[in-house]
Nucleic acid binder design. Sequence first.
DNA 1: TATTTTTATTGCCAAGTGGAAAAAATAGGT
DNA 2: ACCTATTTTTTCCACTTGGCAATAAAAATA
Lengths: 395, 395
Amino acid sequence: MERRRAAEIPLDTPADALVCGTILTQGPILRGDVSRLTGLSSAAVTRATRTLLEAGYVVELGPTGARAGSGRPASLLDMRADREFFAGVTVATQELVGVVIDLKAGVRVARHRPLSSRGVASVVSEIADLVAEMSGEFPRSSGSMHRLGVTVSGDVDRSLGVAQYSPFLQWRNVPLAHLLENETGLITVLENNVRGLTIAEQWFGAGVGVSSFALVTIGAGIGSGLVVNGSVLTGAHGVAGEIGHISIDPLGPQCRCGCRGCVEAIASDQAIIDQIRSETGISGLTGADAIALAKSGDIAARSVFSRAGRAIGLALAALANLVGPERIVISGEGLAALDLFEEEVRQSFAAQAFATAAQCEIVIRPLSFEHWARGAAIVAIHDLITPETKNRRII
Amino acid sequence: MERRRAAEIPLDTPADALVCGTILTQGPILRGDVSRLTGLSSAAVTRATRTLLEAGYVVELGPTGARAGSGRPASLLDMRADREFFAGVTVATQELVGVVIDLKAGVRVARHRPLSSRGVASVVSEIADLVAEMSGEFPRSSGSMHRLGVTVSGDVDRSLGVAQYSPFLQWRNVPLAHLLENETGLITVLENNVRGLTIAEQWFGAGVGVSSFALVTIGAGIGSGLVVNGSVLTGAHGVAGEIGHISIDPLGPQCRCGCRGCVEAIASDQAIIDQIRSETGISGLTGADAIALAKSGDIAARSVFSRAGRAIGLALAALANLVGPERIVISGEGLAALDLFEEEVRQSFAAQAFATAAQCEIVIRPLSFEHWARGAAIVAIHDLITPETKNRRII
DNA sequence: TATTTTTATTGCCAAGTGGAAAAAATAGGT
DNA sequence: ACCTATTTTTTCCACTTGGCAATAAAAATA
């Protein structure tokens, strides 16, 4: 699969890509600031900018509103959002979620569709259908759509476009990117779903301008994506950010991974439900019931949520102590219940974080499934713009 | 402090530094392999090599022993060990440990000296004395010594050369590198002691050729240094690799950090001694006694060591699950007792490591205090050769 | 001795980048 | 209205770097 990037966006030199990425993520920005942020000379910034301006990817917003005194007025640069569009699809538990976004990651269309089967062929054709459907449904003023990003859970090799192993889909070594390129005609990139969301936050969310941060998702499972030195950790064996399977209590509940006291066995949605069921004896208890019960003041339910909060706080502290991110972003579907344990999370984090690691900022960002699909689409942008490093540094 | 690197070793271009680092760490190596490892063209390798050969930093070992069939024989390149020497000093609990090493990190002199006081002025002058003493004591065939590496525990900013905070020395914001440059006349680099040992392993030990690994030290404290994408983690707030303060048991012993169940409170030397004392009632028990007792088959002592092993195994699993290193190296003074719990470490690691994270290799390397001092000296080499990256990538 | 094979070197070239000077665009003073 | 100071942006030039491809070197083999 030949990547015909040149036809899409002119990023001939490393400086081009650097400038493009900076304008993209740092929003409207002055040339001088681009130069300072990237370390490039102003000459290089001018050149790269001109290329992008001529190709219509960047616009000049005219003199900045707040006049800065005398001197030639600086003019702000920004991406032209409607110059190009990107599709993104994430394979969730029960459904496919798809979006089309513009170059500034603004969502133009969003669609859900139930997942009828987990077979490869069926998933491929349903993703293709969803994309085709969406691509007819948004007002494309001028730009076109060449790229698709797809995220699934499990072990994914992005450079190969292969889903190596997905327990949920029961897939092994599925070359999904290739299959979808054939089916949709779009250049397709495949990524792990948590990493996709992490990249989205890194470029357009709470990770902008920060060189290291972590995105923690709480819900059906508990996972995280870690960004260190500006790049997302992959793990030498494909595992990284598995914060859910840190054990914090040798007497804790059994986890489905086989161990005792994993964070996920204490604080995932199902774990909370199970614990409240066994404490209260209510057998048909749902997630909503559990939250309602706790909010109504039920002691047993509240203590289960508290325990979950402490477990998460300890896990975040382990993360902060080991990796030392500048910021930790908490998100996920479980956030409906977050106010039930946010205080415990913060307290036990603060207690367990070692020395200055406690300065790590913890922010909470509710993210919907649409955000996950948007993450997939943003991976497509990321793939377009991030240059492949040529020289391997071993030192 | 102007870094007059040019006078020492000709590393004018990035390619020079890349080739130099590769030859240094990959031992005797063929030009062709350098080219393959670095991604540089063979022409660039030839050019960089010639510069280094002419300056006497690299030697050609002549045709490789094992003839590889027909064709022009390839010749191995290696660093000339005695072309330059480096001093390294680490500030240990009771003493200063110093070494002088050559360019290939071979130790030429090693010396201990008691630490008479922890005051800044006294430490500075004693380090300077130690270095002066050593520099007269090794047979320098031709190379000279321009650089000194120093490591201390605590929060260190290497680029500033400042010890920001060292609880053990009770220092805050001590510009130790600068003070020592004035005192010794050597270009001095200051680094955290665990990071120093980690860099040593990365370049000359179990981390060679691996892009991510962890070095875990077990002894008076439990810490680790993490290498990801070829660079040592620093932590946004100066804390990283603090594996000792992960909490794995809410009912565990109280740690000096104030929390319960930290790995360090279960598995550090003192923690093990304390636990065995309280189990057996022997008040004057020393570390050697504890080991002897356990080796003699004492049930209580053995179970304390077993518990420590399990705690370390869980901590290593947390590390592997979060960061996903290719390899974990275990070292430290506590290794005298390692055979008492190695099996537990491996078992509980294997049980708790998530999915393929269990493939992470665990190797054991006993490292003496002299190795720590050597680590400091290797940081001086590292500082000489590692080029400062010019462009800041924010994407 | 000629040929083949593998490795190393050299000459040439293209291009990316930085430095410095020039130009552009404004505010403010006279 | 014009000039000057100021700040941002652009242009021009030259340099460095590293890749490509042809060439040389050093063996083994025919």
